[in-house]
Write a protein that binds this DNA or RNA. Structure first.
Length: 236
DNA sequence: ACAGTCAATGGGTCCA
DNA sequence: TGGACCCATTGACTGT
């Protein structure tokens, strides 16, 4: 740090995040890979601090930030085997007639283990209905699940899986939004930090160069980081 | 050919 | 202990 040895320096600025480096590297990696983030940074927000020069590293920031926690899940009982999903239904509801086609290729063979996993695609109608339900409740009670499954001619397990995947997608989108917000925040704070450091340097050189009577008494000059104004001058 | 999407799977955790 | 959920991953399919 540049000003580490200056005496009487009451103004020193710091900028950082909790686990700043780790987050950034992970975010970069995430963006490169276009992969969903696995980092847990919900509790982190950027912060600008004032203190001694040596103390303005990442270590002096610690703020908890608990955002967008999922609502507590409903937990009634339901019992379904997921082993039968591979054996798909033979026919689909009316939407089957939809030109959009129903499944890419439903497997005909019901032999256990022998059939490779086939990709099922939900119809537009099914997806829309599921989407509508998701807007109302992002978790389903077993009753709702059954009703929806029956209505869509799907297995309850499929509805359940769809909701799980949908929640994951929502979470990922939110994470990306938060990520972008943090980046911008960090950028702003970095610029702010630079600006204030520069200002501080100027004030110090003024103090050293200027005549004695021009010197400001210690502790009368404090920089408010939020409003960016010099405050605390109680003379007069 | 390759990347992206998404239904499905398997493992881990939590809780009644 | 079983069921519900989350999470990471797989694999079929699609779009370029």
């Amino acid at each position: 740090m540049i000003f580490g040895n200056l005496r009487n320096s009451s103004l020193v600025l710091g900028l950082g995040y909790n686990n700043d480096q780790e987050i950034c590297s992970q975010l970069d990696h995430m963006q490169q890979q276009k992969k969903k983030p696995s980092l847990k940074y919900d509790h982190l927000i950027p912060c600008l601090t004032l203190g001694l020069p040596e103390e303005t590293s990442q270590s002096d920031i610690k703020i908890d930030h608990d955002m967008h926690r999922q609502p507590s899940p409903l937990s009634p009982v339901s019992s379904f085997s997921n082993s039968s999903i591979k054996k798909e239904r033979e026919s689909v509801c009316g939407e089957e007639l939809d030109a959009e086609r129903v499944f890419s290729r439903v497997c005909d063979d019901d032999e256990e283990g022998a059939s490779p996993r086939k990709k099922l695609r939900l119809t537009k109608g099914q997806s829309a209905t599921l989407e509508d339900s998701f807007k109302e409740y992002n978790t389903l009670s077993p009753k709702q699940k059954h009703a929806l499954a029956e209505r869509l001619n799907l297995k309850p397990r499929q509805v359940e899986v769809w909701f799980q995947n949908r929640r994951a997608r929502t979470k990922m989108k939110q994470t990306e939004v938060d990520c972008e917000l943090l980046r911008k925040c960090r950028q702003n704070l970095t610029e702010e930090n630079k600006r204030l450091q520069k200002e501080l340097q100027e004030l110090k050189s003024l103090k050293l160069a200027g005549p004695l009577h021009m010197q400001l008494p210690k502790a009368t000059l404090t920089m408010c980081p939020s409003c960016q104004k010099v405050a605390g001058d109680r003379r007069r």
